[in-house]
Amino acid sequence: MNGSSPLLAVQEVTLTFKNVAALSRVSCSVQKGSITSLIGPNGAGKTSMLNCISGRYTPTKGTIRMGDRELSGVPAHKRTSFGLARTFQNIALFRGLSVLDNLMVGRHSRLDYGLLASIFYLGKARAEEDRHRLRVEEIIDFLNLSPYRHQIAGHLPYGVQKKVELGRALAAEPELLLLDEPMAGMNLEETEDMARSILDINEEWGVTVFLVEHDMGVVMDLSDHVIVLDFGRVLASGTPEAIQNNPKVISAYLGDDDALYKGR
């Protein structure tokens, strides 16, 4: 973490639904190269924040910038070209497609040939397809999904499906990866495997990660920086150590002094 301009800057974001504020004047930032976690009780506004960043929701007020680009008014499907990708709390795979084909869908924003070439599968389309296939194969190997590459995604174990969704997001070659509870519903072995994958993505591929997660053990082990939301407002922000010892966090969110260390 350095003093340079953040990769993601959220300023005074407010989001209301029928006059009820899901987010209220939230300001936070994510430094390039970091793993930053967003935590808080159920209903604190964590997923709403990710939805604002990814373009699923439009903030009532405030600004969201990625680098020098203002994201307001940019449709969700175009934010991928800005270097933004995400996973979802509930698995959103194409369940009838293979693992390989699901990851190829993640390359869609990188396609560089026209309709005619795609219809007749002309030379440029064939070359592009081969290039994207090679990249997807790299991701499959990187995430240890090789045994499943040709299997139907919807038939795979839950933990493997979560890895496939991570791979599909990674296939877009994001600069910033938004992860919405990637360990939700996993057993201990699957959680540790996913945590290692996130660390490798950050350290080996240089991808900045903005993570929403309830598992405090994972959050404290992985994060460079932690932001705490409570009732749609920022309650605290700092290093994992500072958050562990913040009396407001302990009182309002965790409830007791040992809660941050209980993790799994």
Rank of each mutant, 00 (worst) to 15 (best):
P6Y: 11
L7A: 06
V13G: 02
N19E: 13
V20T: 12
R25F: 00
R25T: 07
V26S: 04
S27H: 06
C28D: 00
C28W: 01
S29E: 11
V30G: 02
G33D: 04
G33Q: 14
I39Y: 09
P41K: 14
G45W: 03
K46R: 11
T47E: 10
Y57C: 13
G62W: 05
R69T: 14
A76P: 11
K78N: 12
L84K: 10
A85L: 06
N90E: 09
N90L: 14
F94V: 11
L97W: 05
S98H: 13
M104H: 07
V105I: 15
R107H: 08
S109A: 14
L111N: 02
D112W: 13
A117D: 15
S118W: 00
G123Q: 13
A125C: 06
A125D: 01
E129M: 06
D130Q: 15
R131N: 09
H132C: 09
R135L: 09
I139A: 01
I140K: 01
S146Q: 14
S146T: 12
R149K: 15
G154K: 08
G154W: 12
H155E: 13
H155Y: 10
L156M: 12
L156N: 13
L156E: 06
Y158G: 05
A172S: 15
A172C: 08
A172T: 05
E173S: 14
E173W: 13
L177T: 00
L177F: 06
L179K: 02
E190V: 00
T191W: 00
M194K: 01
D200P: 01
E203W: 09
V207W: 07
T208M: 08
M216E: 01
M220W: 04
D224F: 09
V226S: 00
V226W: 05
F231N: 13
R233K: 13
L235E: 03
N245H: 12
K248E: 12
I250Y: 12
S251K: 15
A252E: 13
L254V: 10
D257Y: 09
A259Q: 14
A259G: 12
Y261Q: 10
G263Q: 07
